[in-house]
């Protein structure tokens, strides 16, 4: 696979604590890469190192096939989590200033900015001061500044915080569009819903170390629990009697005349075999595999166990609707 960005064996220590220990990530070109981890895990430190804001104590960074150099900042767009603008400066003027610092000359940035401002309905605010903008509008301006110089690598740190659902959607569409146009995106977030929706690859960092990484689909497969959920009508026999040693009943219950059962299948057993057990004795209304959500995987990897009681509705958002209590 072709990688746009690689960090190899990065370590960074501050006095008293380690922010990153021997962390390596590979960001494939042209995809969305999720950088996940609890607060204080070292995500922001890693992102700052990628942006060359701070230098690592150890390790190497590569942009494409070259070592990361100061000139590469022009090819990177970065939207920090804690972000602001000069309050007293005019919106347009400020956007042009920040674009200029990214190497876009004034005459060019003005034209580009006008296009983006039109798209985001910000044009009437061009000559207003930033302090007159609402938080959402200021966020849009920051987003525009991040992508204006058409970087190959975009880094978004919690991009959706502070946006209303309509603008979150708008932003998602723009991010996906940028990816389709060939940009590579590193996406740092706690919002697991958006990870599942957007990310192709992830790396999970906890307590300064990378504890998980890879393709989202592969990870999900790796974390599959082999638990299936059945909804049954007209069951003629107790479930316990039907199941043999290959199957383990996790829980069962009745609701609205329907019987719900969760069954774990032993390794090497096909899920069809489970279905065949029930077909003669009951009407199988639904049958689905309960795959862990990224949220579950996140919690499992960080804490060592799946979220407990809450698992009813957390196990899978899609399964949630079918669950009968």
């Amino acid at each position: 696979m072709e990688y746009l960005f690689r960090a190899e064996n990065i370590s960074k220590a501050y006095t008293g604590h380690k922010a990153l220990t021997n962390v390596s990530i590979q960001v494939p070109a042209g995809g969305i890469f999720g950088l996940l981890g609890p607060n204080g895990a070292g995500k922001t430190t890693l992102i700052r190192i990628i942006n060359q804001i701070i230098a690592p104590d150890e390790g190497f960074l590569f942009y494409g096939n070259e070592k990361l150099k100061p000139e590469h900042v022009h090819r990177i767009g970065y939207l920090p989590e804690e972000r602001g603008l000069y309050k007293k400066m005019k919106v347009g003027e400020q956007a042009m200033y920040l674009a200029q610092l990214k190497g876009v000359p004034a005459h060019k940035s003005k034209k580009l900015l006008k296009e983006w401002f039109e798209k985001f309905d910000l044009m009437p605010w061009w000559n207003k001061k930033v302090e007159e903008l609402s938080k959402g509008m200021a966020q849009k301006v920051q987003f525009i500044i991040t992508v204006l110089h058409k970087p190959d690598l975009l880094i978004f740190d919690e991009p959706f915080s502070g946006f209303d659902p309509i603008n979150v959607n708008l932003l998602k569409q723009e991010i996906l569009k940028l990816r389709d146009e060939g940009a590579t995106i590193i996406f740092s977030t706690h919002n697991m819903g958006s990870v599942e929706e957007l990310c192709d690859h992830i790396a999970l960092i906890n307590k300064s170390e990378k504890i998980l990484d890879g393709n989202v689909r592969d990870i999900k497969k790796e974390f599959s629990t082999n638990i299936y959920q059945l909804e049954l009508a007209n069951l003629k026999q107790p479930i316990e009697q039907l199941l043999d040693h290959r199957f383990e009943l996790i829980r069962s219950g009745a609701h609205n005349g329907l019987m719900t059962a969760r069954v774990k299948i032993a390794a090497g057993t096909n899920s069809n075999e489970l279905l065949q057990l029930f077909l003669p004795t009951a009407h199988v209304v639904s049958f689905l595999e309960l795959t862990p959500s990224m949220n579950d995987i996140f919690i499992k990897t960080v804490t060592g166990k799946y979220p407990q009681e809450s698992s009813e509705y957390e196990i899978s958002e899609s399964a949630n609707d079918c669950l009968a209590e």
């Binding site: 060359q52 804001i53 100061p70 939207l79 920090p80 804690e82 602001g84 000069y86 610092l101």
Partner: peptide, 18 residues
Amino acid sequence: LEEKTSRIVEIIVSSVKP
């Protein structure tokens, strides 16, 4: 202080050296 408290500084230092 203004740059720090308004948090614009991180945007700028991703383009220029502190």
